[in-house]
């Protein structure tokens, strides 16, 4: 009985499975995407379960063991307060994941809403919203994020707000372009003829169509988000010590770099690998989705 149901279910969705199979095949063929996916997966798994297995508390200071070089007790050595750098790097992954998720939701959400409104209504609304995004885009991203972070004061939440405020413009432009395309489709006209109001058309028929390009762009930009967060942390404008944010950790070890190189180096390597992973994944995704390269 249940087996029958399952086989019926499988039969009905066969084309979908076939399509997934093809996508999987393309993914495997694209080496960069495979490497990127593996790195990102390891990063996420470490972030979620890593803190349960770390050998030392990442925050409590232990002055006895300060500035130990890498050894079997401390894989990555200890910093100037005697904290285990290995434990701190592992615990820091969760902070980066938090930043990525919340920044994606805020900037993607703001961008989507404003972009759809600008694209659907056009005219004055479009001008006002798009000139505002132009103003945001006129500044280099990191400088603007620094300005916001400095203005709000350094903390985890303010870092997230600052990065989100800088990032939404890209998504707004994407969503606007998509909304402009969708609003001229015949089915929008036909639903108007059936008496649908603006709210219904925008929320039910235009916005869902604009989500997919925004989502793709969000994944492509996750590496940049980490890098910005780390830069802010390094400059002392981001997450405050003692939270183990990677950029702040690199900054911590700055004055010991000549004698105790490990303090800055390991968090720096972590940043480099994860950002590389996200960028490889993004490039790979773009290749997989590009129909010209799909054969």
């Amino acid at each position: 009985m249940i087996l029958e149901k399952v086989s019926e279910f499988m039969e009905k969705r066969k084309p979908i499975f076939e399509d997934w199979k093809h996508t999987f095949y393309l993914w495997r063929k694209t080496k960069l995407a495979t490497v990127g996916t593996i790195i990102v997966l390891i990063f996420v798994v470490v972030a979620i379960i890593g803190p349960l297995f770390v050998p030392y508390d990442p925050i409590v200071q232990n002055m006895k063991d300060r500035l130990q070089p890498p050894s079997f007790q401390h894989f990555f050595g200890t910093d100037q307060f005697g904290r285990d750098i290995f434990s701190r790097v592992i615990s820091g992954a969760m902070i980066e994941v938090e930043i990525i998720i919340i920044v994606s939701m805020i900037s993607g959400g703001i961008g989507l809403i404003l972009g759809v409104l600008a694209g659907y209504f056009g005219g004055v609304v479009d001008e006002v919203l798009m000139r505002t995004t132009d103003m945001f885009l006129a500044f280099p991203g990191l400088i603007l994020a620094m300005a916001f972070a400095a203005m709000l004061g350094p903390s985890l939440i303010n870092t997230i707000i600052a990065i989100s405020l800088v990032g939404w413009t890209v998504f707004a432009r994407l969503a606007r372009a998509e909304a402009m395309k969708v609003k001229n489709q015949p089915y929008i006209e036909s639903i108007k003829a059936l008496g649908a109001g603006k709210t219904r058309i925008i929320s039910l028929h235009v916005t869902p169509m604009c989500i997919s390009p925004v989502l793709v762009q969000l994944t492509l930009r996750m590496g940049t988000v980490i890098l910005t967060a780390a830069s802010l942390g390094f400059l002392g404008l981001g997450v405050r010590p003692p939270l183990p944010e990677w950029g702040a950790m690199v900054s911590d070890g700055r004055s010991f770099l000549v004698e105790q190189w490990w303090i800055s180096t390991f968090p720096g390597i972590a940043i480099a690998i994860v950002v590389l992973g996200f960028n490889l994944l993004g490039d790979g995704l773009r290749d997989i989705m590009d129909p010209r390269l799909r054969r």
Binding site: P186, E189, A193, L194, G195, G197, H205
Partner: peptide, 25 residues
């Protein structure tokens, strides 16, 4: 626009020439 939306669909409705593109895909 609001009073029009109560007429459209209820009192006057319309069939378009391209049936496939007139449905949300």
């Amino acid at each position: 626009e609001n009073s029009l939306n109560t007429i459209r669909g209820k009192e006057i409705s319309m069939i378009f020439q391209e049936p496939l593109s007139s449905l949300n895909p």
